[in-house]
Each structure stands twice: as structure tokens, then as C-alpha cells.
Design a protein around this nucleic acid. Structure first.
Length: 614
RNA sequence: GGGGCGGUAGCUCAAUUGGUUAGAGUACCGGACUGUCGAUCCGGUGGUUGCGGGUUCGAGUCCCGUCCGCCUCGCCA
């Protein structure tokens, strides 16, 4: 084989006169038959034009060259020369060409189902289903090579940063024990212990805490996690986390370390210097933006107008406000009325759109979405304007209304209203064109750290408390005593306890989340009690961690970044499959390998399992 | 589990209210061509319209079911 001396992206006019060898794929054929053939040769480094000149070559070489086709794999040897036909400014190597003296066809291709061209060979990309089936061809596309390379750089920058800061990279088991809380798990039957199963980890949570007890001090791992839940555009059942844990730290120390990581990563990947990241309490995020991961690239803040609404003539406002009126402010079951002022909405929002919003908020359990417009005279009109007449001046002042605005109202319990408004805000932002381009396309990178999450929330269906983060999340340091002292039946107090958890949010997307962990046994047992676990059940599920925590556990805290989402941000894609070499489809199939596939009865017998076939 | 969009030559798409032999570009095969760079020109091969049923004189088109892909709600401690 004529092994390459250079890559296809390397040669410049400085190489003119040198004899070189290139290996690669035929990216394009431009033949003039009897006398002259051009081939663009591609590898992951670039494209170089090689030329076969009939006058200088044996007939059979020219003949072979004339039959080269896209995706054939070849090796050539020849001399670098300035292009006789003029420069091609589209190519980095466009000033030169290689005049071939020897051609070796390393592999003729079958006719490929599509070409790995970012323009689809002159048209659109082949559909994703086909590209996933022949992933090895799709991955040859320059933009996919770029994605893979970008992901590689994120790995390397991550390892450098955490190595410099004293973290040890430690692997944790993939065959793990089932912990039925949280996401549905993938199960693996045991051959040696009949009737028992491993589970694939949703995250290495318990192991990383154990590593702190084990004195490892600082742990990091770029690890695969598995959650058998339905995917989304930015979510796969199988995904990658940058998983971290630190000993002898409190919340602010972890946040400082993570902010340093974000700053380093963005500097290396984009050149952008991340400014100090603002910290916002969960409560404030919910009040102003209706969501725990607010997109702060635009305004459109939500206002609580409950007090004003109570004095209006709108019966449905009063009805909503009557709900849970005896509960404290911000209690999830207490009725509220919220308003969203849409600047210029009178013009930007059509009747059809606002009707759509009405339906939209209903999907989150709200009764509907009321609308008023502010006319040129500054008066409220249309929709529920008449019902608001008694409070119009208060409303104008509270919301800062100006002519041309539209105001959207939702009235319901705090939980429903906040959720509906938060979602509505994002839709309205898109509809009115106030969402900037992503950072990777020149728009802002807006980072935010959200803290002070509630420890617990009520499950809608069962009415039981569930941990908002996970059962090992500590209360904020100043809340621990109140938490331990609180009665299990005191819902209002339990709901008000905030945790020492933290999320990092980028442009409205959660890119990392973590917490300080419980190392006080009193707090831990209180958490289990609230979650409805008896000491025996808790021991059964988490025995090894609980046991370990008894033997000298240092205070510790950690966090995990969603690596796939980080890479997506650097690439400016909203499709997680673009950043995973071998992704799965919506129903978890790998279209290339055909996984998941059937197994034989013999295999099942081996692992003491039987299939229930539909 | 629910909602939405889609599936027609290898690929990207078209095909009037249901109406003649389902077309075009590209790829592929053959031919011409010594400076192309999405090469060009000429000719040709290529179809169970995802699959199954139904309505109809007649279905790519309408109806029912089903499979697959994507988006989304639920779900994702």
C-alpha cells in the first residue's frame, strides 16, 4: 500500500515540487476521458485535487482513474504543483494539485445509498433514518467529522481542567444494582445468581459518594448513564455525563470550581470569556420566569397580579384566588393570577395565536388564557377588558403597559399557573421573535446558576412527597435544624425547606445539576421518613451507602454536566443525535446494528429468564 | 400511553376534484470529451407508491389497521 506522507488537508504552495502520497476517499470525479481526469480526494482533514494526465501516464492507469467513483478508497503518489487551471478558493488546498504518477485502488465501493456530502451531493441531506442505518457513511460528512472532533476536544479540555484541580478519574460499574426510584432502568439478568438482575446506572450517584467516604477527595468521570424513558430532541436513553464529586466543601466551593470549568471550557472551545455567573434562587426564577431554568436572553417577565385581580369583575380570577387561600404565599396549592405583558403584542399576536395560547395553557391544567390589548389611547380593549375596568389603572401601573401591548392572563393554583405561564412565555418569545440566535451562531451565552430548590415536592398522582433532586441531597446549611425539627405532617413547612442543590443553566437549558450531600444521619433518616421509607426499606435499597456513611464520611458535594448538551451548544445543533457517533431512535433502536434484537431460548435459559412474546 | 408531521426509482422530490403507460433532477451503467472544480454533452437501466385490509368501474390519492422515522405532552429522583 502506498502509505500517505501527508493528509488531504495539508498541502499548500510551500509543498510545490515535492513528491507526496495521499490516501483517502474519492469525493468527486471530473473526467475528460481519453486524456485528463480530476479526482477530489477526501479524508477527515480535508480535500485535495489530484490530476491524471493522459500524456504522462500509462493507458491502464488513466483507464482505472477514469472509472473511479465517489467513495472509492485510493492511494496516489505524485508531485505537488501549482494548479494549471487556476486556484479553487473553496478549498484550503485550492492553490495546488497533485499530478499523479502512481494510482492504487485500495477498495472499490458498492454504489453508496447516499453521499457523505453536507449538501447531500448537491441537494438536501438524505433522510435521517437512512443516514442512521448507514452511519459509517454519514459520519464521513465534514460536519459530522467536525462534531466528533468537537466532542473529543470537550473530553480533553475536561480531563485537563479537572486533573489540574486535583480530581482523580475513576471508573464505576456499569452492571449495578436496581434502585427503583426515579427513571425506569435497563435490566440485565444474572447467570450465576438465578432470578437476580443488574440494572444499568441512571448515574453513578451512590458510587461517587462512596468514593468520597473512601478518601479519594475529588472524583471525576466522563460516564455513560442510562434512563429507559422516552427521548426528546435533546435527550437519549443512553447519554454521557461529566460526573464530579468533592470532599470537604460546601455549596459555594463546588459552584466556584464549576464556574471555573465553564469559563475554561468556553475559552478553549469558543474563545468566549464567560463573565461571573449570576446566581438566582429557585423562587425568584419561578416568580419571574415560571421555570427553574429560565432563558434570560430576553425579558418577557411574568407578573403576579393576584391582589389587583381580586378587585376586578372577573369571576374566574376570584374563583382561582379562592383556592388554598388559607395557605402561605408561594404554596403550590394557593390560587394566584399571573400576567404576561407582551410588548407590541397587539400587532405581533394574531387572534389565531392567542386562541392557540388558550389551548396551550389548558394542556398544563390551567382553565385558559385571557387576553387584553392596549390601544393607541392607552386603554384596555378586547377580551376581558370590561371585567378589568375597575382595576385598569392599577394594572397599567403594575405592568408598565404602553400602547400596542398585549397582556396574557392565567389564573389557577400557584403550581399550575406558574408552569403554564413559564411555558407560555417561551412560546410567546418565539412567536414574537425576541429569542436571540444561539451563542454558537453569534448570539449571547447567558449562564445562570439556580439555587435554593425545594427539598421535596408532592407527586400529583400519589400525593406522596418525592425528593426534587435525589434522597441524598442536603438541606441548605441554615435549614437543617428546622428540617429535622419539622413535623412530618406539617406540609407548609416541609414544602418551604430548601436544599443545598444547584443547577447551571445556559440560555434556558439545564447543562448541569448537583447538590451538597447529606452526611448527618439525623437528616438522612428524616428524608427517608418523609419519602415513606421505613428504616428497613431504606437499608434494603441503599444499605451500602448508609453503612459507608457511618464510617467516617467527609462532608461532600458534587455535580454532573450533560456532556451531549455541552457539545450541542458548541455546534449550534438542537439534535442530540448530531453529537453521538452511534445514536438511537425514538424507540431506542440502533438502525445500523439492529439492536435491540431477539435472543435464543438457550441464551434466556442460561440467565434464567423467559420471554413474554406479544 | 396521548397529539402532530412524514414514508412514491439507490437518493431528493413531483404527480389537479380518485382517472391513460407514476414523472423530473441526481446517482448508477454505456458512449463522447485535455483544465475541471456541483465538469459538460448524448443514450440507457431503474418502481409491489412502507406493509395489510377495505370502499370504488378505477386508489400513490379516500377509509381502517399496522410498522418505521421525526417533533411533542406524559415521563426523565
Amino acid at each position: 500500500m502506498l502509505r500517505r506522507t501527508h493528509t488531504c488537508g495539508e498541502l499548500r504552495d510551500a509543498h510545490v515540487g515535492q513528491t507526496v502520497r495521499l490516501n483517502g476517499w474519492v469525493n468527486a470525479y471530473r473526467g475528460h476521458g481519453t486524456g485528463l481526469v480530476f479526482i477530489d480526494l477526501r479524508d477527515r482533514f480535508g480535500v485535495t485535487q489530484v490530476v491524471f494526465d493522459g500524456e504522462a501516464l500509462p493507458k491502464d492507469t488513466l483507464d482505472t482513474a477514469d472509472h473511479l467513483r465517489n467513495e472509492d478508497v485510493v492511494a496516489v503518489e505524485g508531485r505537488v504543483r501549482v494548479r494549471a487551471g487556476g486556484e479553487n478558493p473553496k478549498l484550503a488546498t485550492g492553490k495546488i494539485e497533485v499530478e499523479v504518477t502512481t494510482l492504487e485502488v485500495l477498495n472499490k465501493t458498492a454504489n453508496p445509498p447516499f453521499l457523505p456530502d453536507d449538501t447531500g451531493g448537491g441537494g438536501k441531506l438524505a433522510n435521517e433514518e437512512l443516514r442512521l442505518k448507514h452511519r459509517y457513511i454519514d459520519l464521513r460528512r465534514p460536519s459530522m467529522q467536525h462534531a466528533i472532533t468537537t466532542r473529543h476536544k470537550v473530553y480533553q479540555a475536561t480531563r485537563r481542567y479537572f486533573d489540574e484541580n486535583g480530581f482523580l478519574e475513576i471508573e464505576t460499574p456499569i452492571l449495578y444494582k436496581s434502585t427503583p426510584e426515579g427513571a425506569r432502568e435497563f435490566l440485565v439478568p444474572s447467570r450465576n445468581i438465578p432470578g437476580n438482575w443488574y440494572a444499568l446506572p441512571q448515574s453513578p450517584q451512590l458510587f461517587k459518594q462512596i468514593l468520597m467516604v473512601a478518601g479519594c477527595d475529588r472524583y471525576m468521570q466522563i460516564c455513560r448513564c442510562f434512563r429507559d424513558e422516552d427521548p426528546r430532541a435533546d435527550r437519549q436513553a443512553e447519554f454521557t455525563q461529566i460526573d464530579l464529586e468533592m470532599s470537604f466543601v460546601r455549596r459555594e466551593h463546588v459552584i466556584e470550581m464549576m464556574e471555573g470549568f465553564v469559563r475554561r471550557l468556553w475559552k478553549e472551545m469558543t474563545g468566549y470569556a464567560v463573565p461571573p455567573i449570576p446566581v438566582m434562587p429557585y423562587r425568584e426564577a419561578m416568580e419571574r420566569f415560571g421555570i427553574d431554568r429560565p432563558d434570560t436572553r430576553y425579558g418577557l417577565e411574568i407578573a403576579d397580579i393576584s391582589e389587583i385581580a381580586a378587585r376586578s369583575d372577573a369571576g374566574f380570577f376570584k374563583e382561582a384566588l379562592a383556592k388554598g387561600a388559607d395557605r402561605p404565599k408561594f404554596n403550590s396549592q394557593r390560587g394566584v393570577v399571573k400576567a404576561l405583558r407582551v410588548p407590541g403584542g397587539a400587532e405581533k399576536l394574531t387572534r389565531k395565536m392567542t386562541d392557540g395560547y388558550n389551548e396551550f395553557v389548558r394542556s398544563f391544567g390551567a382553565g385558559g388564557c385571557a387576553v387584553v390589548k392596549v390601544n393607541a389611547a392607552g386603554e384596555l380593549e378586547t377580551g376581558i377588558a370590561k371585567l378589568l375596568a375597575p382595576v385598569k389603572d392599577d394594572l397599567k401601573a403594575a405592568l408598565g403597559l404602553t400602547p400596542g401591548d398585549t397582556v396574557l392572563f392565567v389564573a389557577d393554583t400557584y403550581a399550575v399557573c406558574t408552569k403554564a405561564m413559564g411555558e407560555l412565555r417561551q412560546v410567546v418569545a418565539r412567536d414574537t421573535g425576541v429569542v436571540p440566535k444561539p451563542g454558537s451562531e453569534g448570539g449571547p451565552w447567558n449562564f445562570l446558576i439556580v439555587v435554593d430548590f425545594p427539598m421535596f415536592e408532592k407527586n400529583k398522582d400519589t400525593g406522596k412527597w418525592v425528593a426534587m433532586h435525589h434522597p441524598f441531597t442536603a438541606p441548605r446549611d441554615d435549614q437543617a435544624e428546622a428540617f429535622v425539627a419539622a413535623s412530618v405532617d406539617d406540609e407548609n413547612t416541609i414544602e418551604s425547606i430548601v436544599s443545598a442543590g444547584y443547577d447551571i443553566v445556559l440560555n434556558g437549558q439545564e447543562i448541569a445539576g448537583g447538590s451538597v450531600r447529606i452526611h448527618d444521619p439525623r437528616v438522612q433518616s428524616k428524608v427517608f421518613t418523609l419519602l415513606g421509607l421505613t428504616p428497613e426499606q431504606a437499608k434494603e435499597k441503599f444499605s451500602f451507602l448508609l453503612e459507608a456513611l457511618q464510617y467516617g464520611a467527609p462532608p461532600h458535594a458534587g455535580i454532573a454536566f450533560g456532556l451531549d448538551r455541552l457539545v450541542m451548544n458548541f455546534l449550534g445543533t438542537s439534535n442530540i443525535r448530531d453529537v453521538i457517533a452511534f445514536p438511537k431512535t425514538q424507540i431506542g433502536q440502533d438502525l445500523m446494528t439492529g439492536a435491540p434484537g431477539p435472543v435464543t431460548d438457550e441464551q434466556l435459559k442460561d440467565v434464567h429468564a423467559r420471554a413474554i412474546r406479544p
